[in-house]
Simulated scan of single mutants.
Amino acid sequence: MDIKEIQNLIKFVAKSGASEVKLEMDDVKITIKTGSDSPETTIIQAAPMQAAPQMVAPAPVAQPTATEPAPSASAPAEDNSKFVTIKSPIIGTFYRRPSPDKPLFVEVGKEIKAGDTVCIIEAMKLFNEIESEVSGKIVKILVDDSSPVEFDQPLFLVDPS
């Protein structure tokens, strides 16, 4: 099971409203618990002749939320509360284009639709396309190209109007 399948499973469980889901396959056991303020996912993968490694990570929030004012200096006339934030669903390296010789996925002022790829985040040599869950116009890009990002870190501000 790859990271994309796990992310999709987490999103599905979060949307379904289930409080706990356990999935056991040949060499992988996944438990996803929600219903508390801190949903968590436990993934245990058995490796032959080794102790089973364990990874615990918070489940990503399925819907984007209204943004909080960015700590960086922004135009005083701007009201960030009307914008929607696209956040990083994983830890990794943020890229604004699919490869160095290709055009940028999005730029400030560009109209996007739900499902459009807005960036790529590389995690453990896997390139994960990050798709927008909202339609609107990109107002601000909050992360520099090729820089590390944390889970739930704001990446873009989108004006949904």
Rank of each mutant, 00 (worst) to 15 (best):
116 D>R: 07
150 E>Q: 11
1 M>G: 09
22 K>N: 13
94 F>H: 03
93 T>Q: 14
91 I>D: 04
33 K>H: 01
109 G>L: 14
10 I>P: 00
161 S>T: 14
4 K>D: 03
148 P>Y: 02
60 P>R: 05
151 F>L: 02
63 Q>M: 02
18 A>F: 14
121 I>M: 02
50 Q>C: 09
143 V>Q: 15
67 T>H: 05
121 I>R: 01
78 E>D: 13
130 I>H: 05
71 P>C: 03
57 A>I: 12
109 G>H: 15
100 P>D: 07
120 I>V: 15
11 K>C: 02
52 A>G: 01
3 I>L: 15
63 Q>R: 08
113 K>Y: 06
124 M>K: 08
20 E>D: 11
19 S>L: 09
54 Q>E: 12
108 V>P: 01
54 Q>K: 14
117 T>L: 11
117 T>G: 10
64 P>N: 07
131 E>M: 11
77 A>T: 12
152 D>C: 04
95 Y>S: 07
24 E>Q: 15
48 P>Y: 03
141 I>C: 01
103 P>K: 12
141 I>T: 01
25 M>Y: 10
98 P>M: 06
158 V>R: 06
38 S>A: 08
73 A>I: 15
48 P>N: 09
32 I>P: 06
37 D>Q: 14
25 M>W: 05
71 P>A: 06
17 G>V: 08
74 S>C: 00
111 E>V: 12
1 M>P: 05
100 P>A: 05
68 E>G: 04
40 E>D: 05
140 K>V: 01
128 N>M: 11
136 G>E: 05
89 P>D: 07
120 I>C: 09
3 I>D: 11
64 P>G: 04
61 V>S: 14
11 K>H: 12
26 D>W: 00
148 P>L: 13
72 S>Y: 07
45 Q>H: 10
112 I>A: 02
82 K>V: 11
110 K>F: 02
139 V>H: 06
40 E>G: 02
36 S>T: 15
11 K>F: 15
6 I>A: 12
25 M>V: 11
31 T>S: 14
117 T>I: 15
76 P>L: 10
150 E>S: 10
15 K>M: 09
71 P>H: 03
117 T>P: 13
29 K>V: 11
68 E>Q: 13
76 P>C: 03
108 V>F: 00
94 F>D: 02
134 V>F: 06
105 F>L: 01
92 G>Y: 07
92 G>V: 03
36 S>E: 11
135 S>V: 00
132 S>W: 06
